[in-house]
């Protein structure tokens, strides 16, 4: 699954001057180029900073919705997990450590099915992932899709990434490095004033 199309459009506008001009003059049409269909009753306004003006946005209902959905999530280490795997909720991130195998995959699945919002599953500490684990990821993704949400896989070790690639899962999940989220985007944000 490709990265967030809204983010992609913004990153593209940082390097592609022609696209930037289209995005500024006709946001709806330019966003459609990146596969984003803006609902008819929504207006998108695109701004850029100038030499003497800085523009910043406060997320509105999006932030409120995110907060509400995050509140419904559990918090802290998950107690009821078979030995071999550790799971901990940190806001919308679920940190996994250890082995995701026949024994432990049901606990991962159970935790993912508790969520109703976008979840970042952090896999940096995972050393083993087999078929039942893959099934749990898939179940989580399907469950979240019914809430217009995604399961995103973060900080995936190369061995685990190879497994995902071989079974064709790379198309089903967005995979990001959480510390840098999405490098070109963060690089662009860093270039903004205040940072």
């Amino acid at each position: 699954m490709a990265a967030n199309p809204v983010k992609q459009a913004i990153v593209r506008a940082c390097t592609d001057a022609a696209y930037r001009a289209r995005l500024l003059s006709d946001p709806r049409k330019a966003l459609a180029e990146e596969g984003i269909e803006v609902p008819a009753d929504i207006e998108v306004r695109v701004h850029e900073n100038t030499d003497n003006k800085i523009v910043a946005v406060l997320p509105g209902p999006q932030a409120a919705e995110l907060r509400e959905r995050t509140k419904q999530l559990p918090s802290g280490p998950v107690v009821d997990v078979p030995s071999g795997l550790g799971l901990e909720w940190q806001q919308t991130a679920l940190i996994a450590t250890g082995r995701i195998d026949t024994n432990t995959a049901p606990a991962l699945r159970r935790e993912l099915l508790r969520a109703f919002t976008d979840v970042d599953l952090v896999l940096s500490g995972v050393t083993f992932l087999s078929s039942p684990g893959l099934a749990a990821l898939l179940a989580g993704q399907k469950h979240l899709a019914t809430y217009d949400s995604h399961l995103r896989l973060c900080d995936v070790p190369v061995e685990i990434r190879n497994v995902l690639e071989m079974v064709g899962f790379l198309d089903l999940f967005e995979i990001v490095n959480r510390s840098s989220l999405d490098d070109p985007y963060v690089a662009a944000l860093m270039a903004m004033p205040f940072h």
Binding site: V6, I10, A13, C14, T15, A17, R20, L23, L24, P27, D41, I42, E43, V44, R45, V46, H47, E48, N49, V55, A56, V57, L58, P59, G60, P61, Q62, A187, A188, L189, A191, M192
Partner: peptide, 16 residues
């Protein structure tokens, strides 16, 4: 600026 139910603002970082 603030986003609302009907208006979404996006700010473009500088062109690199």
């Amino acid at each position: 600026l603030e986003n609302t139910d009907k208006v979404i603002h996006l700010v473009l970082p500088p062109l690199v």
